[in-house]
Design a binder for these strands. Structure first.
Lengths: 187, 187
DNA sequence: CTTTTTCATTGACCAAAGTCAATAAATCAT
DNA sequence: ATGATTTATTGACTTTGGTCAATGAAAAAG
């Protein structure tokens, strides 16, 4: 919770009142390993801040799991597309370890947007940050080889492979498990 | 200009005063074919609304032009990453035909954010929309073959190939010109 | 209109990732 | 612990896009 307050303070200074009202909307939840935070077909009506645990964001295409994102402590976890458009989610969000999150529902967040310009701004800054995040990922798909993407990923999160099965990492960097195995072998 | 007002009205209702203040910040510019709206190394301190003309967003990597985006009438054209972070642009933005745009500078937009909550909200909605746009493009790189990306693109904009050279389209969908030529041949 | 330059096509060959299949290693459940 | 299941590795072969090079077509410049 302190972590979240610090994160927000880097973006916008909230008054005690604003923070209190925001905090009043947060719902603490725990999710066991393998539990689903969101399933395909459901509307994603929340954004959650991760206090502990890792999540994967994936869907099934032609019988095959495709991992689009991992979420770690300190990240926001949501299907932001579904959250924004109210369309049903095309992805599952699953805990890969026991997890603790703080959820805020869309209707509550929108009420806060209406009430406080500072929180409206926070919403803008969060959207802008998510834009920057996804831009980086698109860049890496456009400009780098699977091998480079693998290197980038483990540089950024060296303990990822201790936390998630290798075939999920393979999918995340856009190759088959066999190929990641070979990438790792030639080093 | 009417086009822009209509676009905004779909997102947020602006009062006459708000719209007038916004409009006062807009700078109309014309750019001849092949002119640069932004060059690599410059900070992108603006967002522009396209009234007429097409732009490409590209950079040079290992001596080769890589096209990351096209912008059409009705779109916003900017290096949004540079705009948000104040980092120098890693891309050029070039007019592919004679073009007319309405530019707003970052400092003016931020002043409007401070003054009007409705425009702050507009900024959030624009960021959210750009997020959705780029997410779609990432999806298409993750899930579809170059052939499918080509089909998607010409379905969306059937006259694109009359407007831009084929090698730019090839780069945009992530293949070499020779490969796009072969994709087109096998149909 | 003719020359030059740019752009598109085609062919032969190469490199990288995918596919299919077998096996080994690790993890999970009882 | 042990047997079952899931995950990772390795090999042989295929597919797809990249590379290099030649040729043809179209567009721009004079």
């Amino acid at each position: 919770m302190e972590q979240l307050k610090n994160y927000f303070n880097k973006l916008v200074k909230l008054t005690d009142q604003e923070w209190a009202d925001f905090q009043a909307c947060l719902i603490k939840e725990t999710h066991a390993k393998k539990a689903y935070l969101l399933e395909e077909g459901q509307k994603c009506d929340f954004i959650a801040f991760i206090e502990a645990g890792t999540f994967r964001f994936y869907h099934i295409l032609d019988g095959e799991e495709i991992v689009t994102a991992f979420f770690f402590p300190g990240d926001f976890v949501t299907n932001y597309r579904s959250f924004l458009t109210d369309n049903p989610s095309d992805h599952h969000i699953q805990a890969l370890q026991d997890a603790i999150i703080y959820k805020i529902h869309k209707k509550d967040l929108h009420a806060l947007y209406d009430r406080y310009q500072s929180i409206e701004r926070l919403g803008r800054l969060i959207a802008e940050n998510l834009y920057l995040t996804i831009t980086k990922r698109l860049d890496s798909f456009q400009h780098t080889s699977p091998e480079e993407r693998y290197q980038e990923l483990i540089n950024r999160n060296s303990k990822l492979l201790q936390e998630v099965p290798q075939y999920m990492v393979a999918s995340y960097i856009g190759v088959k498990p066999e190929t990641l195995s070979r990438i790792r072998a030639r080093k």
